[in-house]
């Protein structure tokens, strides 16, 4: 199967420079905030989620991906009125699963990336709805069509974003 890693190179752990690891999440949060200010429709895109998925698929280490997802999610919670942890929990789970999948699949394949991001977005929305609606009793309406559109848009944006981030990648 073409999506699975067939060579050792495709399954190798890769790393990113430290400045990139520190700056990219912050830039993602800032851009998400700034672009949505001028283009309100941009809120369907979740740049912090895409960065989390990218880090997880690049590192292929579930522990690092879980912690990174938690930190990025909590930072995103800060910008909202939510209690801290709503986005943190969702991104922790997504990071863990993406890293676990990254060990077995070819993470540089565009099809794989589309599929992983699509599923990750749906999963993240599901966890968010569960926490907000069930645990925090906030009025939230689940709309399948909207969520699928969100997932598709995020997957398409991820293709471009991941290609840009690949240029900063450092192979061990």
């Amino acid at each position: 199967m073409v999506l699975l890693a067939s060579t050792r190179r495709e399954a190798d752990q890769q790393s990113l420079p430290l400045p990139v690891m520190l700056l990219v999440p912050l830039v993602a949060l800032g851009l998400q905030s700034l672009i949505t200010l001028h283009f309100p429709l941009f809120d369907v895109v979740d740049l912090p989620l895409l960065v989390t998925v990218y880090f997880a698929m690049t590192w292929r280490n579930p522990i690092s991906a879980t912690v990174a997802g938690a930190l990025i999610g909590v930072a995103q919670d800060v910008l909202t009125q939510h209690p801290l942890g709503v986005f943190g929990i969702g991104k922790s789970v997504v990071g863990y699963l993406a890293a676990s999948l990254g060990v077995r699949i070819d993470t540089e394949n565009h099809g794989t990336r589309l599929l992983v991001v699509f599923i990750s977005t749906l999963l993240h929305s599901g966890i968010f709805w569960l926490l907000q609606h069930r645990m925090l009793a906030q009025p939230l309406v689940w709309n399948w069509l909207r969520e699928v559109i969100r997932a598709v848009v995020n997957a398409l944006v991820a293709l471009i974003l991941f290609a840009l981030l690949d240029k900063t990648k450092r192979r061990d």
Binding site: L37, F42, L47, Q76
Partner: peptide, 14 residues
């Protein structure tokens, strides 16, 4: 206004 929350369900300005 220099930013927003950036998420669909959160209407917060910075």
């Amino acid at each position: 206004v220099i930013g927003v929350s950036g998420t669909e369900d959160s209407h917060v300005l910075i």
